[in-house]
């Protein structure tokens, strides 16, 4: 009974704060826009039968017909994918270094990885604006050292978005890979060398396959939030940066078209479900392998 109560609390929480809002959003996505408060019709005031009769999939067909939306989805997927790969390239060596560091250093190194979470995410992204802008710290440094004559245009480009995403989500990549590498028995690498592998071969044949689960987990933890990312592209990206999170925001607040915005959100969620399921399966497989 107590166990049931313990499980019930988070499930009720999820039900109230995820499933119910989702159903509301889904309902709005099936409605029509209207000059009213709230800005859509029908509402529950029209009675249940009228409500159900007037709902339709018009907004979804609209999304399919206007290429802005599917281009935004594709562009988001591309940006999320590239940033995930970049985060992996940056994060893996850091995790590897941490796992190979002397025992007494590891807690400190772990602390340093988590440290940025102590400051608001928004403030850290604003700080990047200060670094990347034309008069920013990076350009000042580059011009002072004479590497470039003219300031580089980094802010308001996709490059800035990649920098922002890699920076923000790096800990989510490092931690699962570190966990996998930390458990790796050093004698496995020695055994590989003993059997004729060079250091590099041992890394590819032993270390990488045995940290695969960490790599997969970290990649999903970066890819899933990056796909719907709104703050980073709107603050660091330019007008050319097309991401679905930004489109969503504009539909809601600029066009005041709640039904279309809701439809965009529902499709985004459907797209996200695929990697989330894959991620779950990876976690499950890992748990099974450890038994």
């Amino acid at each position: 009974m107590r166990r049931f109560a313990l499980i019930a609390v988070p499930y009720l929480w999820l039900l109230a704060l995820f499933l119910v809002p989702f159903l509301i959003v889904f309902k709005i996505s099936l409605s029509d826009t209207a000059l009213a408060i709230p800005p859509y019709t029908p509402t529950i005031k029209d009675g249940i039968s009228a409500l159900i009769a007037e709902l339709d999939f018009e907004n979804f067909t609209f999304l399919a017909s206007d290429d802005l939306y599917w281009k935004a989805y594709l562009s988001s997927l591309r940006i999320a994918l590239i940033s995930t790969i970049l985060t992996l390239i940056v994060g893996y060596p850091i995790a590897y270094g941490m796992a190979r560091a002397p025992e007494e250093w590891r807690a400190t190194l772990m602390m340093l990885v988590i440290l940025p979470f102590w400051t608001s995410f928004l403030i850290r992204v604003y700080a990047w604006m200060g670094i990347l802008s034309n008069e920013g710290l990076l350009n000042q440094l580059l011009m002072w050292t004479g590497v470039v004559a003219e300031p580089l245009q980094i802010l308001n480009t996709n490059t800035a978005v990649y920098i922002g995403i890699v920076y923000t989500y790096l800990p989510f990549m490092i931690l699962p890979i570190y966990a996998a590498l930390d458990r790796l028995d050093e004698s496995l690498n020695e055994a590989a060398e003993d059997l004729g592998c060079s250091r590099m071969q041992a890394f590819w044949l032993v270390t990488i396959p045995l940290s695969r689960n960490g790599i997969v987990a970290g990649s999903f933890l970066v890819f899933i939030p990056a796909l719907g990312e709104f703050v980073i592209p709107s603050l660091l990206g330019g007008s050319g940066t097309l991401m679905i999170g930004k489109v969503l925001w504009e539909e809601f607040f600029n066009n005041r078209d709640w039904p279309v915005a809701s439809a965009v959100a529902v499709i985004l969620l459907l797209i996200l479900i695929i990697p989330i399921i894959l991620f779950q399966r990876n976690q499950q497989k890992q748990a099974e392998a450890e038994q």
């Binding site: 496995l188 020695e190 055994a191 060398e193 003993d194």
Partner: peptide, 20 residues
Amino acid sequence: VPPNKRAVNMMFQSYALFPH
């Protein structure tokens, strides 16, 4: 001579079998 070039093989205490 590095370990991978020696005509010497070792059986490790932990066996160090590749789990994958």
